[in-house]
Design a protein around this nucleic acid. Sequence first.
DNA 1: TATAATTATTGAACAATGTTCAATAATTAA
DNA 2: TTAATTATTGAACATTGTTCAATAATTATA
Lengths: 191, 191
Amino acid sequence: MARRKDHSREELTQIAIKAGTELVVAEGPEALTARNVAKLIGYTPGTLYNLFENIDELCTAINTKTLIRFAAEIEEILSEHSKPRKRLRRICQAYLNFHHKKPELWALCFATPLRSLNEDYHRAVHKVFDPVAEALLPISGTLRAARQDAKVLWSTLHGICLLQQSGKLNVAETDPAEILVKRFLDQFLKR
Amino acid sequence: MARRKDHSREELTQIAIKAGTELVVAEGPEALTARNVAKLIGYTPGTLYNLFENIDELCTAINTKTLIRFAAEIEEILSEHSKPRKRLRRICQAYLNFHHKKPELWALCFATPLRSLNEDYHRAVHKVFDPVAEALLPISGTLRAARQDAKVLWSTLHGICLLQQSGKLNVAETDPAEILVKRFLDQFLKR
DNA sequence: TATAATTATTGAACAATGTTCAATAATTAA
DNA sequence: TTAATTATTGAACATTGTTCAATAATTATA
């Protein structure tokens, strides 16, 4: 058998990304295998290797789409609010919301070690990061400081969700992520 | 072939943990396979399964030892300094130092998703966490607040090193982790 | 001491993973 | 109509984790 061409190369790529995303949402990051995705889209694993260099690249493509979707949320928040602190609190809330609603997709995006990060991916990171730095500008003073603060903020959100999800900081009380983020923000924005 | 008993069960367990640690330090977390460890200690994979339920458990055992070693460093810092802020800055410095000196071991401990965290592991986490909370007590006010702040601090260190190492926050400037941690601490300790 | 019970160790196997690639057939170009 | 291109497959290979019957050395028992 060969060459069906039910879809263009680009269509098929998008179909694979979508199927991969659904797999991860339904069964977690470890379900994202070449054979699983192939079966789900009605092709064989070999076809995936015609679209992607390797499955890491498919994984990165899924994460890139995830970041782009999240960036859109951030843009919406910025357009709805103009006060810097309100903006930042809402962004953090959106991050926590994403983690809460789609923990497996969040894990694939933020808690899965990956090689093969590419140009598209880094562009998507910028789409998320730059608006956060922008929102921080009035608080941090200089652009340079704002970008550093954005990294700190991002790292903290990241770390809080990661430690929560991984169970690697199971000590006595289990404070919900929201409480920890609030505590962080109260101090972080106090200036 | 069978039963050599060159070592007691407990000895062999420690030997395996040590060999695994060396493998990770030398070749990274992905080199930690049953066959690699077995070959390094002069046994077959089957023997490892007589010592550990699965390789995740070996991995957790390595991480537990890593945490215990790091906890000792923290204790030393606390004994050398009594001012709260100085203590915390030195602890953070030690964390960054660990990340810098043994990035692969750090990755195994903090950036590798694991099931099968056990009682020993959580005890080791306490050994690291509790002294940090203790150092924070004079700054945070109440014990509850101190423990929450310790989680925030820990998460931030974590997140900063993770994003740095993973390359997942590659945006224009590459601020060294030290700069970001300093910026975080300056604000975090301002009270 | 002789025999039985226990257990440490192996080696071979299995399933699942990523990945490669010659073969093939459908499409497109000449 | 023919040639060149390319999408797709299926079978293969290496590497992973893991299991387990077979075995032999040690320990307990009679």
